[in-house]
Simulated scan of single mutants.
Amino acid sequence: MEAIIKKRIKQVLKGDQNAFSEIVELYKDRVYQLCYRMLGNSHEAEDMAQEAFLRAYINIRSFHIQMKFSTWLYRIATNLCIDRIRKKKPDYFLDAEVAGTEGLDLYSQIASESSNPEEELESMELRKTIQEEILKLPEKYRSAIVLKYIEELSLKEISEILDLPVGTVKTRIHRGREALRKQLGHL
């Protein structure tokens, strides 16, 4: 896939806007999910994902073709989300309900493999609780936890995205995990 992306990037550099549309199609869901996990609000996640693609397009000439494109794009999206978190009121974004659904969140929209409604409800409540607790973490731990456990990226990729040494990334993941464990232990 990376070879296809690099080919599309070369086309974009030559002025082909359709090639960038193909890149957006390939990454839009993952970038949105990253932003949603960081912000906890679907509308803000959409805005930040769009902004990430816009900035990627505008700055495509600064992309080093030998790098992995997804790492570069995730760095843009993560930095935008961190900036957004820093500018917000602390509890403004904790409401991640889907409009018009009487309290249901996006997790409730995901098809379940379980046939037991009680199990589904418990699982949905657990995911919601974990997401709420992730949102309470300081942004430096939140970004490391989301990239590691939700996006399932390697320590090296996280290091590149956050522009931090691998050791610092490990520390932030460990401290974020410990903070989450304490937060969840109090529930």
Score class of each variant (00 low, 15 high):
Met124Trp: 15
Met1Phe: 11
Phe93Asp: 06
Gln11Asn: 08
Val169His: 00
Gly15Pro: 01
Tyr27Gly: 00
Ile145Ala: 00
Glu119Cys: 13
Leu162Gln: 00
Pro90Trp: 10
Glu97Trp: 06
Ala99Asn: 12
Trp72Gly: 02
Gly103Lys: 11
Gln131Thr: 11
Arg127Gly: 00
Ile4Trp: 12
Gln66Thr: 13
Glu160Gln: 14
Glu152Thr: 14
Ala56Asp: 09
Asn116Ala: 08
Glu97Cys: 10
Ile110Ala: 15
Glu97Asp: 14
Asn59Thr: 06
Leu121Gln: 14
Ala179Pro: 00
Ile130Gln: 02
Thr101Gly: 08
Leu26Thr: 07
Phe69Leu: 02
Ile134Asn: 03
Leu153Trp: 02
Asp163Val: 04
Asn41Ser: 08
Ile5Arg: 03
Leu121Glu: 13
Pro117Gly: 08
Asp47Pro: 03
Leu137Thr: 13
Ala111Lys: 13
Arg37Lys: 14
Tyr149Ile: 02
Val24Ala: 07
Ile82Arg: 10
Phe93Ser: 06
Val146Leu: 05
Thr78Met: 04
Ser159Trp: 00
Ser108Asp: 13
Ile23Gln: 07
Ile161Ala: 04
Leu34Trp: 11
Ala144Tyr: 04
Asp105Met: 13
Ile60Phe: 10
Thr171Glu: 15
Tyr32Asp: 06
Phe63Lys: 04
Lys170Gly: 02
Glu22Leu: 15
Ala52Ile: 07
Lys156Arg: 02
Glu25Cys: 03
Glu133Asn: 12
Glu22Gln: 15
Phe20Asn: 07
Pro138Asp: 08
Asp91Phe: 15
Thr101Cys: 12
Ile161His: 00
Ile60Glu: 10
Glu118Met: 02
Lys10Ser: 09
Ile161Arg: 00
Ile5Lys: 09
Ser112Ile: 09
Phe53Pro: 01
Trp72His: 10
Tyr107Lys: 09
Phe53Lys: 01
His64Arg: 14
Val98His: 10
Glu97Leu: 03
Pro117Val: 14
Glu25Phe: 08
Met67Thr: 09
Ala56His: 12
Leu26Ser: 10
Ile161Phe: 07
Lys88Asp: 12
Asp47Arg: 04
Ala111Ile: 11
Met67Cys: 10
Gln183His: 11
Ile58Pro: 05
Tyr92Met: 11
Ser159Met: 00
Lys6Tyr: 11
Pro165Ala: 03
Ser21Cys: 02
Phe20Gly: 03
Ala96Arg: 11
Arg37Ile: 02
Gln11Ile: 00
Lys156Leu: 04
His186Met: 14
Glu120Asp: 14
Phe93Pro: 02
Ile76Trp: 08
Phe20Ile: 03
Pro165Asp: 09
Glu178Phe: 12
Gln50Leu: 12
Gln17Ala: 08
Leu147Thr: 09
Glu22Pro: 06
Tyr27Ala: 01
Asn59Gln: 07
Asp83Gly: 09
Ala49Glu: 06
Met38Thr: 07
Ala96Pro: 04
Tyr107Ala: 10
Met67Asn: 15
Gln33Pro: 03
Tyr57Ile: 00
Glu118Ser: 02
Thr171Ile: 10
Lys170Phe: 05
Leu54Cys: 12
Val98Arg: 06
Arg61Cys: 04
Lys87Pro: 00
Ile134Trp: 05
Met48Val: 14
Ser143His: 02
Tyr36Leu: 15
